Amino acid sequence: MVTQKPVLDIRGLSGGYGKLRVVDGVDMTISENEAIGLIGRNGSGKTTLLKIIMGLLPAQTGSISIAGEDLSRKGAWTRCPRGIGYVPQGRLVFPRLSVEDNLALGATSVKGKISDSYESVYELFPVLHAIRTRRAGALSGGQQQILAIGRALMSKPKLLILDEPTEGIQPSIIIEIAESLKRLSRESGVALLVVEQRLDFLNRVADHAHIMDRGSIVERLPFDELSRSPELQQKYLGV
């Protein structure tokens, strides 16, 4: 059996805001085809961890390796060319630009023509092709979320990181996004790291759950085990 090399490997990672340490000693490895749901109560450090991984906040201690290269002390701009796509909380699309122009901004690290990137994104999300000339600011919240995911996929990442992808969108779009992400992982081998509060969404997408509490990973387990355990859900999520 061939052992896959990790796309993302973080060791002893700590960081936060100024002197305030929010993330404390996190270890995590994600390989191709893996889908991990990162969950925990509000304030447990999930979004801060993503920002440190992406270089948007500095790592105080520990290391961040992407495809075997240590980027711990390098800027955020080094992540996308190394194969990491990021969909931040709140989507952050450019409202005055068209859907297609928003997508093009996600392909700035792609060498040569980006027609293949457009084709892949439109095949996964046909709605984006249908509305490609519309301004992003005129879209519904669900359409903007799909656009944000499509924009991150334009660079053909090996790992896609998503922060609260179901926030503020309607149930039918939530199901569409979940099915598309699962298809992406299954057919294209893209690894997924998803911060999300909705267990029903993650149950469709994630293979494993990593549970954060007080800035650390306190549990790692198959996601179906978490979904069957009211005790764990109450202990770490309060649900």
Rank of each mutant, 00 (worst) to 15 (best):
V87E: 10
Q234K: 14
I149V: 13
P222Q: 06
G168N: 03
L153P: 02
E219C: 07
I177C: 12
E179V: 10
Y236R: 05
T29P: 01
G137S: 04
Q197G: 11
G142F: 09
E32I: 00
R82P: 04
R151I: 05
K51Q: 13
D207K: 14
L20N: 13
R135N: 14
Q170M: 15
L202H: 10
E176G: 09
E176Q: 15
R73I: 00
T29C: 12
G83Q: 02
A178P: 14
S120C: 00
L128I: 08
A35G: 05
S98A: 12
E187Y: 07
H129L: 14
D224L: 04
I131L: 05
L56V: 06
L160A: 05
V194I: 15
G62H: 07
L124M: 13
I173Y: 06
M28N: 01
T29W: 00
S63E: 14
Y86K: 05
R21A: 15
E176M: 13
L202F: 11
D9R: 13
Q233A: 09
P171N: 12
R132I: 03
G55A: 07
R73K: 15
P88C: 03
P58M: 11
E123R: 15
E231I: 08
T3R: 15
L147V: 09
I146H: 01
G55Q: 04
S14T: 12
A148N: 05
S155T: 07
A191W: 03
E187S: 11
A130I: 00
G141T: 04
R21C: 13
P165G: 11
I30K: 01
P95S: 03
D207W: 00
L226S: 08
Q233Y: 07
S109D: 00
K235G: 04
L221P: 09
R73W: 03
L237E: 02
K5W: 00
V190D: 08
W77P: 00
I211F: 11
I146S: 02
Q170V: 12
L192I: 10
V121K: 14
V22Q: 05
S63H: 10
I84W: 01
V99S: 07
D224K: 14
M54W: 02
L49N: 09
E32F: 00
Q89G: 11
G40R: 09
R11C: 11
I52C: 08
R214N: 14
E225S: 15
L97D: 02
Y86T: 01
A148D: 03
G37S: 08
E167M: 13
I161N: 06
V110R: 14
L160R: 03
P171Q: 11
I84R: 05
A209E: 08
G83M: 03
T47Q: 03
G55P: 09
S63M: 07
V110W: 01
N203R: 14
V190F: 05
L202V: 12
S216F: 01
L38Y: 10
G25T: 05
V195M: 09
R79P: 01
V23L: 14
G168Y: 01
N33Q: 12
P165W: 04
N33G: 11
R134Q: 15
V7D: 02
T47H: 01
E123T: 15
E179F: 01
V22D: 04
G16C: 05
